[in-house]
Design a protein around this nucleic acid. Structure first.
Length: 304
DNA sequence: AAGAGCCACAACCGCGTCCTT
DNA sequence: GAAGGACGCGGTTGTGGCTCT
């Protein structure tokens, strides 16, 4: 039995919002708040919209202090770093970028950053020294494992690709296949709460989350779990890998020796990347990404 | 000038999780 | 503890605008 629809599809209006609808929704919420019930909200206002649609419109567009367009190089850096670390948890990534919404970040990644990072790979593929099968797997974005019984998620694949790409830059002759950063050690399936990254604070910046951040607890729990799961703390070698990775990411994003313009903008100096040895540049819930944690979530699922 | 193709963004959809009863 | 409803999230789709031919 399927889930009951949240609204009457026949009477609900779909498609782009009109300025009048925007004004109605904005005025009502600013005056009365959401009332804690998005489903009932459109009926109260007299809008022929689904409650979910109202919520999305408010969160992504009408809410105060929303920024649109023109992501800065710093934001690029944060998005890339976090994507490689935690994958497509857009709400978490967006929480690090005040004024940005998860939808914005997601769109920006899919339309710009991903192409900027992975697109460069195509150029390099013509000089690829790796086994053709590995390259084929990469470019197809499909099954990384032998039997092809289970395909990694696109997100996981992209993360692998990014790490491979970065590793290749560091050591082109060493196939990424042997990269300990890329291939986690096999271990038993102990999928605890690793994938339950759900957060009710998705639209709250770290500063707002404060010391009692439940996300911080989530992340710490994750890291603790990873440690208990046999993932060692990063060695100094791995530390240097990550530091190199940050530089490589910059190169991928902005091109070799190009510290200047990005989409017409100006690359500001001092873009702060995460590393194990520097003070944390952005408020990351005291979260320091571990190289191995890049893969921990799906490694446990897919038992790579 | 017009049509095709591409791109970016807004919005929708379905599912997992949380909360209330 | 179970069931139902609402919320929040990530993936996907639709559409308008831009560029190319």
């Amino acid at each position: 039995m399927g889930r009951a629809p949240c609204c009457d599809k026949a009477t609900v209006k779909k498609g782009p919002w009109s300025p009048e609808e925007d004004a109605m929704l904005k005025n009502y919420i600013e005056e009365h708040g959401t009332g804690g019930n998005w489903i009932a909200l459109p009926h109260k206002i007299g809008l022929k919209r689904c409650g979910k649609s109202c919520r999305l419109r408010w969160l992504n567009y009408l809410r105060p202090n929303i920024k649109h367009g023109d992501f800065t190089p710093e934001e690029d850096s944060i998005i890339c770093s976090l994507y490689i670390s935690i994958g497509s948890r857009w709400s978490i990534i967006a929480a690090q970028l005040p004024g940005r919404t998860d939808n914005d970040v997601k769109n920006y990644w899919n339309t710009k950053l991903k192409k900027r990072l992975l697109g460069r790979r195509k150029d390099r593929d013509t000089h690829d020294h790796r086994p053709s099968a590995a390259v084929a797997n990469e470019t197809s974005g499909e099954n990384m494992n032998d039997g092809g019984e289970r395909a990694l998620s696109a997100s996981a694949m992209e993360r692998i690709q990014l790490c491979m790409q970065l590793q290749e830059l560091q050591n082109p002759l060493s196939a990424a296949i042997h990269n300990p950063l890329v291939w986690p050690t096999c271990r038993g399936t102990t999928q605890s709460s690793n994938n339950s990254f759900n957060s009710n604070n998705s639209n709250v910046t770290v500063a707002e989350q404060g010391q009692s951040s439940s996300m911080n607890e989530h992340l710490n729990a994750q890291l603790d779990s990873a440690a208990m799961d046999g993932i060692a703390s990063p060695s100094s070698v791995e530390n240097s890998n990550v530091i190199n990775m940050e530089a490589e990411l910059q190169e991928l994003l902005y091109g070799e020796g190009n510290q200047g313009s990005v989409d017409g903008g100006v690359q500001q100096e001092g873009v702060e990347w995460w590393s194990y040895e520097q003070a944390r540049p952005v408020n990351c819930w005291d979260f320091t990404p571990e190289p191995n944690s890049v893969f921990q979530d799906y490694a446990s699922v897919y038992e790579i």
